[in-house]
Amino acid sequence: MFPWVYGFTWSTGNLIFLGIFFTVVIVIGLTLGLSVLRSLRSAQSNEIAHIRWKSEFHDLPAAARTCRHIFAGDTRERTCAHDFDCGTCTAHRHIEELRRSGRIVLHRPAGSGGFSVSSERLYHRGHTWLRREPDGTVVVGLDDLASRLVTDRSTLGLPPVHAAVFRNAPLVTIRRASAGTRILAPIDGEIVEVGGEGCEWLVRLRPRSLGTDAFAHLLRPAEAAGWLQYEFERLQRSLASGGVGVTMADGGLPMQELASAVPVDAWDRALGEVFLEP
């Protein structure tokens, strides 16, 4: 049984002690081997984008993972545990059911904190918007908060035409000085056109699916209004050194050139906060 152990005898002490020891060693080895095997399988089945997002989502601060139903006023406190994949969330399905039956009404909040929200667009939590076009394609652009942070279009690295993009995987890269991040794709699809200078959108996509489930995770305008306001506050809190402290409301609106107000050494942090990159 244990021929490699010097002086082994078939005694109870030997059997129990060495049996337990080698079982532990085998379990450690098997578990480690299983991790390696699963990693190789994930790499072959092209799950990298999905796993990268799951890993990044796990590391986001709780404030960045706030449930969409808080912005719609459906609930007071809730943190998303479904990687912003509302299609897999039972609570979301239940609330949507109530909404369809008219027991909950989706109210548009009084304001959006000075950020513009279009009724024709759906919003992704990575600060892109999406508009469905009559030809079956969708156009994707930066929402109002992101646009005020990323004002220089030349800093954006756009994907080539025909490139496949995956939901919550990098769509666009931002390079500014030493800081850099990526902007997440709102849905799965293929790039059919890249927007030029002055265009309101960044890319045109042909979605992999046009079913309701493919867009279920995107925020509707009524939710996006409260969400943008919340996100702006979150950005301000993260940039305030040592906490915000006591503040007084001044009734002001966010400036158009938000980027110029972000200190150089905080730029990296600001990009990470807004574009959900831990």
Partner: peptide, 23 residues
Amino acid sequence: RKNASMLLFEFQLHKLMVVFAGI
């Protein structure tokens, strides 16, 4: 974590952490 293979290994290892905690 920018390296895909390291990210995958970390992710899969983390999922089995309960086994290591038990051991």
